[in-house]
Design a protein around this nucleic acid. Structure first.
Lengths: 339, 339
DNA sequence: GTTAGCACTCCCACTCGTTGAGTGCTAAAA
DNA sequence: TTTTAGCACTCAACGAGTGGGAGTGCTAAC
């Protein structure tokens, strides 16, 4: 569709625009990239590229700027993939796993590093309770009528909740219940919990059982907010496209709509590998001039969450995609290894 | 020191400036507040107030703007305290306690509400591990060599950590250790843990004991970052003084220095009641044009943390102070009641 | 002690010409 | 047919100049 020279020109323009955030003129291209043709020829190519929708002109006497279509083509076929130097890779791997022993921490750390690496906003969706498997359930009697419920879920999430009962139970009673419950629920996923199990629990464990079922039904739905997490929000203020404070506010406020974000990232979870949504490809209105790069991460062979980066459409796709890929892989490795 | 009319003028100027963020002229004051004197008289007063340091003039033909000293006087003696309407108060109380049963959540929710209420950045310092008392310690054997340590600390903080041992232990062994440890540590504060206890634990509980001591020594120091928490950072972008993106960035980046923040808020913890640090009174350089309003919160009679609000020196002190006071009290009540 | 009057200051918004980067078109060269 | 030099044209950005307006301080009269 596009001949070789047009591709070269388009790529040169996008590379340059990504770097400088300034509209790119024909002279600049002729000077920086040695295409062996004069600015006039490049102008002709640029006019064609604009006509076919790959470029745009902010105003008639300015240079050209890539359109969403241009970026899409760039990402799909033009750009040169970025490869992290081995050294940096190892340092990264190390930093992620340095927050020893707590998967939740590791996930947060991964988000922080991703934001740092890309100088953009990073998002991370923690494993959804639905997919988790009961690994252990422990009840501990505190003084009075409080019972601490500790749920250990696979992979590596620990949740604590306090429930209160009307009457007091002895530690022994609670230990018994704990053991029995543990036996009943071990290896079951949240999704598999159905009315059958719930009614059995209520029947067999009376007041505690009821409180527990209630906890499970409502308690884990409520923390959708904790399930998604943004890091490095300050970074976008450094991007020239967000020097306009109002635009920055619009985006940042959109990011506080956790459910909204979740659905945004959720749609990427169906595919494997690094996904890119450019500008208008995003449904979210506040993100029409942003791109979203996402990748799922794993425990073993199961997709458990998504990480992503949000930046202006003029982001360094090669670098961001590499960073997302690398962080997702490091995280997967880490979570898989220490189960 | 200041006669009545000067106080009235100063108060009128500060009220007006807080509302409009525009330098205040003599005519404005004469028109809006019925002081029964002409602008010329007010001009004289204003000149005096400037000379004594309560006001400043951005340039000679502009109105006056309060100085830090002016704000200080305003906060200490001039302003009319704001009282929340009962309805709003009850709604607030309700919203804070709606995140049932988890103190950590309540604290986060309090921060969110405080930010919403003041349209500023809210900060919250969660109870420091040092002050916490062991309430319960539970070890649970997971498969392989993993042992889940659940620490229940008073007031209401639950921490989970995973430790790994070289050899496997049976659930019974671990339950025994758990019971013994629990007995030994119950009621002890972190601060009281000394070498004696540590060496006893290591002696009596071997490998698990050593891992545990290590965990306690390093594990709880490491989460200083989790101990302080900012909410509503987007809000300051709406303040006219932060339309300049670079200033906003400077402040926001300062807020990411968790340790720095901790020391900032920590100094307020020595006093009871609502504390205000205005502009230059703050040591932090990024906060020279901001004020910080803080208040400690309690469990029973023990100070366990601090909440605060950061905004431009031109903040609505009456409202912010009331909000901080109210949220801190609600939080204290909540934490105290469900122990 | 207060106030009207007035000269003065200085920011701000606006206009207007200039500059320069960049374009499209045309016609000649390859 | 493609490329390119040349040229007229466009338009944002910048700076200088200008008028208006808000606000002041001072003075003299009340």
């Amino acid at each position: 569709m596009l001949d070789d020279r047009k591709r070269l020109v388009l790529r040169a323009i996008i590379d340059s625009y990504i770097e400088t955030a300034e509209p790119v003129g024909s002279r600049t291209i002729a000077r920086k990239h040695d295409l062996g043709v004069s600015p006039a020829t490049i102008r002709n190519e640029m006019a064609d590229l604009e006509e076919t929708g790959y470029l745009q002109q902010p105003h008639v006497s300015a240079g050209r700027v890539p359109s969403d279509k241009g970026y899409r083509f760039y990402v799909d076929t033009l750009m040169e993939p970025y490869v992290f130097p081995g050294l940096e890779l190892r340092r990264l791997q190390e930093e992620i796993s340095s927050t020893q022993l707590s998967p939740e921490r590791s996930i947060h750390e991964a988000a922080r590093l991703l934001a740092l690496l890309t100088q953009s906003i990073s998002l991370i969706v923690a494993p959804s309770p639905d997919q988790l498997v009961f690994k252990h359930l422990q009840l501990v009697a505190l003084e009075d009528t409080g019972i601490l419920v500790t749920l250990v879920l696979h992979p590596g999430v620990v949740k604590n909740r306090l429930i209160r009962t009307k009457r007091e139970y002895s530690s022994e009673q609670i230990a018994d219940v704990s053991a029995a419950l543990n036996h009943k629920l071990k290896g079951v996923t949240y999704k598999q919990l159905g009315l059958t199990i719930f009614s059995e629990v209520i029947r067999d464990f009376g007041e505690i059982g009821r409180a527990l079922v209630e906890l499970i039904l409502q308690g884990l739905a409520e923390d959708k907010g904790e399930q998604i997490y943004a890091s490095g929000t300050v970074n976008i203020l450094n991007q020239p496209e967000f020097r306009d404070v109002d635009r920055a506010i619009a985006l940042l406020e959109a990011l506080e709509q956790k459910e909204h974000l979740l659905s945004l990232l959720g749609s990427a979870a169906k595919f494997s590998g690094v996904q890119v949504a450019i500008g208008q490809e995003n449904v979210s209105s506040a993100m029409q001039s942003c791109s979203l790069v996402t990748c799922t991460y794993y425990v073993g062979n199961d997709v458990v969450g998504t990480i992503g980066v949000i930046g202006p459409t003029r982001m360094d796709y090669a670098r961001v995609m590499a960073a997302v890929e690398v962080v997702s892989r490091s995280l997967s490795t880490l979570l898989t290894d220490d189960k």
